[in-house]
Simulated scan of single mutants.
Amino acid sequence: MIYNRTSNGCLFKCDSCKSIHLEFNNININFPSKDKYYQFAEYLQDINIASVVKQNAHSPYQRKIVIPIGSGSCNFMLHSGELEDLKRLCLLQLDTNIINMSKLEIDFSLN
């Protein structure tokens, strides 16, 4: 089931393994439960982009937004626009009023 999709990624639940998968650019994160996914999504939504960019302004990295993944030895490195897109992708409610775009059928006539 596809929960959400942007031009840079997709959020979906796998029918076979029942995990929630987040694909964003060339990164994939697998969440074994909704609780783990919601922790990540809430963390993202709470990030104040302007504040973090200002805080890391003197960082040698080009991307000023650092999001630790797992134990912290791996990080997302994002520009502000990338974080905004990732926030749009990560929904805080997965099962309410979601249109599965892969099953959306539109009946129209070309005449």
Rank of each mutant, 00 (worst) to 15 (best):
L110G: 07
N97Q: 12
C14T: 07
S102I: 08
G72K: 08
H21G: 04
I47Y: 03
P60I: 04
F76R: 00
T6C: 07
H58K: 15
N111D: 13
I29A: 00
L86G: 02
E82G: 03
R5P: 00
I20E: 01
G9R: 02
C90P: 00
Q55E: 15
L89C: 05
K54Y: 11
S71I: 03
S109R: 15
P60Q: 04
C74N: 05
L44G: 02
L11G: 01
F24Q: 04
I2P: 04
I2C: 03
C17R: 10
G70C: 10
I20L: 07
D46C: 11
R88T: 11
N56H: 11
G70V: 10
S102W: 09
N26L: 04
N100M: 10
N30W: 06
R63G: 01
C17P: 06
P32E: 06
G70H: 08
K103L: 15
L83Q: 03
L78Q: 01
E23H: 08
N48A: 12
I20T: 02
E105N: 15
T6H: 04
L22D: 00
S33W: 00
C14M: 07
S51H: 15
L89S: 05
Q93W: 11
Q62H: 15
Q55M: 13
T6L: 10
N111I: 13
N100A: 11
I2N: 12
M1P: 13
N100F: 09
Y37W: 11
K36W: 01
D85I: 05
V53K: 03
T6P: 02
F12P: 00
E23G: 02
I29S: 00
F76S: 01
L94S: 03
K64L: 11
I106W: 07
I67K: 03
L86T: 00
K13W: 04
L89R: 08
L94K: 04
S109C: 14
G81E: 06
E84L: 12
I29E: 04
I20C: 01
N97L: 07
L22M: 07
A50W: 02
V52H: 07
D85Q: 06
A57R: 13
I99G: 01
L104E: 09
N97W: 07
S109I: 14
A41F: 00
E23I: 09
N30H: 08
Y43M: 15
A41M: 03
N26D: 14
